[in-house]
């Protein structure tokens, strides 16, 4: 379980997160929804131990990310795009991540195959399209066969086939007992795949709960989103 509790983050005088609290549970896909600049990436970066919170905690099964003994085997993550230097090949990128994370080498071919990059292992990342970069980022997230997946805007740049594929992947992961937390500002995407919703606006959580509960009283998720975030005013 991913537990975010009382998270506050300030950059100088700016408060970008205020008392953010929510959970992502095993066996469920949790959608983290909010307009641009709402604080989704800021929250996920703290969860992944990249940034430090001003206050509050973000725990993975009770432990902060930085204290996990083999982090990429517990949590697979992807933040904006491939996360690889453009001059290296896809295979080299996965090879060093595997080494660093204590993951056996055979996983490199397995994940390349799984994300549909089997033929592009020797291609340099700089030559990848947006969607291929995204697939490489996903491959790195899947490398350690983690129980939890934390993905920032995973459908960005994917073609319709890719979007359908990732939906199936995330659904399968949750159905097998895994935890999935994904952020998005695309309501239609989130409505299709999530069980639970967390809506953030202006650094504050404005709604959490099962999808059906959050949109209850609204015609669609889109209407619920605009009503809750005040984005259309």
């Amino acid at each position: 379980m991913l537990s975010i509790s009382g998270l506050t983050k300030r950059h100088g005088p700016r408060t970008v997160l205020s008392d953010v609290t929510f959970q992502a549970r095993p066996g469920r896909v949790t959608g983290f929804l909010g307009p641009n600049g709402a604080g989704k990436s800021s929250t996920l970066r703290i969860l992944l131990g990249l940034d430090r919170p001003t206050a509050g905690t973000a725990l993975i099964d009770g432990r902060p990310y930085r204290k996990l003994p083999d982090p990429i085997r517990a949590v697979g993550s992807m933040l904006d795009g491939s996360g690889a230097h453009r001059s290296r090949t896809a295979r080299n990128h996965l090879a060093w991540v595997a080494r660093a994370g204590g993951v056996p080498k055979r996983r490199i071919d397995e994940v390349l195959d799984q994300v549909g990059l089997a033929g592009a292992g020797r291609t340099r990342v700089g030559k990848f399209s947006l969607g291929m970069g995204q697939r490489l980022g996903l491959a790195a997230a899947l490398l350690g066969e983690p129980a939890a997946l934390v993905l920032d805007e995973p459908v960005n740049g994917l073609d319709p086939e890719g979007i359908r594929w990732i939906r199936g992947l995330l659904r399968g992961h949750a159905d097998a007992g895994g935890t999935v937390l994904l952020s998005s500002h695309l309501m239609s995407e989130v409505a299709e795949i999530t069980d639970d919703l967390v809506i953030i606006a202006g650094g504050r959580i404005v709604a959490t709960g099962p999808l059906t509960e959050v949109i209850a009283g609204h015609a669609t998720l889109e209407e619920a989103f605009f009503a809750l975030t005040g984005a259309d005013r």
Binding site: L48, L50, R66, P71, G83, A84, H85, V125, A140
Partner: peptide
């Protein structure tokens, strides 16, 4: 420097947070 071109540093620090 190559860690900071294309934000590879995020991948690096998620694999080795220490």
């Amino acid at each position: 420097a190559t860690e900071y071109a294309g934000r590879q540093i995020a991948t690096t620090l998620t694999a080795t947070p220490n």
